[in-house]
Simulated scan of single mutants.
Amino acid sequence: MTLTPFTSAAPIIQFHILLALAAIALTIAILMLPKGSGYHRLMGRMWVATMAGIALSSFFIHELRMIGPFSPIHLLSLYVLWNLVSGIRAARAGDIAQHQRTMKTMAFSALLVAGAFTFLPGRVMHSIVLGG
């Protein structure tokens, strides 16, 4: 394991990685907290801001170019932004079951599934963990 790929990556990639790591930590904390508590809501707001930052920062990362400067991963970013709004609306409307489904599905798909793709050869996380 080496941090050289991280320290030599573009600042937007460093920012993106740090936000993703924060989102993972927040996800674990939120799932452990009593639902609806003040801490759950505070951490939830932080998680939403972090996930929005991850999604928005991805539009400035163009390592995989398939459709102009974009790749299919950018569709996931649009999905995340849409679902953040949907999840917040559900919570505010009192539809807690829908809020939970939306946020859990997004955490799984955006953090775990998309996160797994960052370990493919040639990607920064692959280089950090497996040594390039």
Rank of each mutant, 00 (worst) to 15 (best):
M1T: 13
M1R: 09
M1P: 00
T2W: 09
L3F: 02
L3A: 13
P5I: 04
T7Q: 06
S8C: 08
F15V: 15
H16Q: 03
A20D: 02
A20R: 02
L21G: 14
L21Y: 07
L21A: 15
A22R: 10
A25H: 03
A25V: 14
T27K: 11
A29M: 08
A29T: 03
A29Y: 09
M32W: 12
P34E: 15
K35A: 01
K35C: 01
K35H: 01
K35L: 10
H40N: 05
H40V: 08
H40A: 05
H40Y: 12
R41L: 04
R41G: 08
R41Q: 01
L42C: 10
M43Y: 10
R45E: 14
V48N: 01
V48R: 02
T50L: 05
T50S: 03
T50Y: 02
M51P: 11
M51I: 05
A52H: 02
A52R: 07
G53S: 05
I54L: 07
A55Q: 03
L56M: 05
L56N: 04
S58R: 06
F59V: 04
F60Q: 07
I61M: 10
E63L: 10
L64H: 06
R65T: 11
R65F: 04
R65Y: 02
M66A: 15
M66L: 15
M66S: 15
I67Q: 06
I67P: 00
I67T: 15
G68R: 08
P69G: 14
F70S: 01
S71K: 03
I73R: 14
H74E: 11
H74N: 03
L75D: 03
L76C: 10
S77W: 10
S77N: 08
L78K: 14
L78D: 15
L78M: 15
Y79F: 15
V80P: 00
V80G: 02
N83M: 11
V85A: 12
V85F: 04
R89P: 15
R89D: 13
R89F: 14
A91K: 11
R92M: 15
A93I: 05
G94C: 09
D95A: 08
D95H: 05
I96Q: 07
I96A: 04
I96S: 05
Q98W: 11
H99Q: 06
H99K: 11
Q100C: 10
K104T: 07
M106K: 01
A107P: 07
A107D: 00
F108T: 02
S109K: 10
A114C: 11
A114Y: 07
A114R: 08
G115N: 06
G115W: 07
A116C: 11
T118N: 01
F119W: 09
F119V: 06
L120R: 13
P121I: 05
P121A: 11
P121Y: 00
P121R: 04
G122S: 14
R123M: 00
R123K: 03
R123A: 07
M125Q: 04
V129T: 03
L130V: 02
